[in-house]
Simulated assay, not measured.
Amino acid sequence: MPEEPTENISGGDEGGGAAAEFDPADADTRAEAVVDELGRMYWQKAYGGQDAFECLVRTILSQNTSDVASQPAHDSLMERYDEDGRDLAETLADAEQSELAETISSAGLYNQKSEMIIGAAERIREEFGGADGFDAFVTDEDPGEVRERLLDIHGVGPKTADCVLLFSGGRGGVFPVDTHVHRIARRMGLAPADADHEAVRAHLERDVPAEKCGFGHTAMIQFGREYCKARKPACLDGPEACPLYDLCDRVGVDEVAESVVDPADAD
């Protein structure tokens, strides 16, 4: 199995979980066939086991920025606030906002993100008694209830909630949708061209087996970075340039004119 690209935090060494062994047999849907091919290109992995509160913090830091920027912010936060013998949620609930903002400045939007993290820590301390109680809730309770409670935390959207369910709770059938997944699923024709993030998630979770959703999410992100870029997808260089060319509808891509528009704006 190829090594996971460490640039992709969710699928790299910090992603938790373990290698998943299953046979990519004949797919029942085109979405499953795409995920199987992505698995052959990158990796197959079942997720879970990451601390839920740290996963939440990491995902908030990654909002509207790259892993290159958010990883140093996460490392700096953990170095300053992960004190031996003290609950991380409790520590961050008591953090001074300007100090935390300075600590995570490399992630961008650091004032907003520091407020979100402190607010989330306060909620988790109040409702679950701290990070350990929150971790047990995410791991053991009904996924629908977990998702609903997560979405009620300021700064937590559907993608953040789904990442916590996947990488901490290890829940099968969860396919988080970020900007790469949203673009690729619609461009390939795996979801309607005008589908929003939630509609894309519904289509992928319907058409991809539960045990394949986790690595499908992380591998699709990597594919978006390497091949299916927003402005210049590999298919513009010819069919041989994209390993998923035959599985793709290329909605919004005009190979003759070498132009690309958002799938929702395609004729």
Rank of each mutant, 00 (worst) to 15 (best):
V256E: 15
D194F: 03
L190A: 01
V200A: 03
C213V: 03
T179N: 09
V200G: 01
R225M: 09
V251Q: 06
G238V: 06
I184V: 04
V181G: 02
D194S: 12
L244A: 04
R186V: 01
D207R: 04
A210K: 13
D246G: 06
D237M: 07
R201K: 14
Y227K: 11
A219C: 15
D196I: 02
R231D: 13
L236T: 11
I184G: 05
C242N: 04
P243Y: 07
E240R: 11
K212S: 14
R187Q: 07
G189N: 03
R206E: 14
R206N: 13
E226W: 06
L247R: 05
D254V: 01
L190G: 03
R250N: 14
D249G: 00
R201G: 09
R201M: 08
L190W: 00
V177H: 10
P239N: 09
V177G: 11
L247Q: 05
D196P: 08
E211Y: 12
R225C: 05
D207Q: 00
F223Y: 15
H203A: 15
H182A: 13
D207E: 12
C248P: 04
E255V: 15
E211I: 11
D178E: 13
K232S: 15
V253K: 04
A257S: 09
A234V: 11
A257P: 09
D237N: 15
K232G: 11
A234R: 11
A185I: 04
D194I: 00
A210S: 14
A210C: 10
A202Q: 10
M188G: 01
H197C: 09
D254T: 04
A195D: 03
C213L: 10
F223G: 10
C228A: 12
L190Q: 03
A230P: 07
H203G: 08
R206Q: 14
C235M: 06
V251R: 11
P192V: 04
G214K: 10
A199L: 08
C213P: 11
L244S: 01
V208C: 09
A219S: 15
R225P: 06
P209C: 10
D196K: 03
G238T: 06
A219R: 12
K212V: 09
D194V: 07
A195C: 05
G224V: 03
A185V: 00
A234Y: 05
F223L: 14
C228K: 00
A257W: 07
D207M: 03
V253R: 02
R250S: 13
R183P: 04
E255F: 00
G238L: 07
Y227R: 10
A199P: 02
A193I: 02
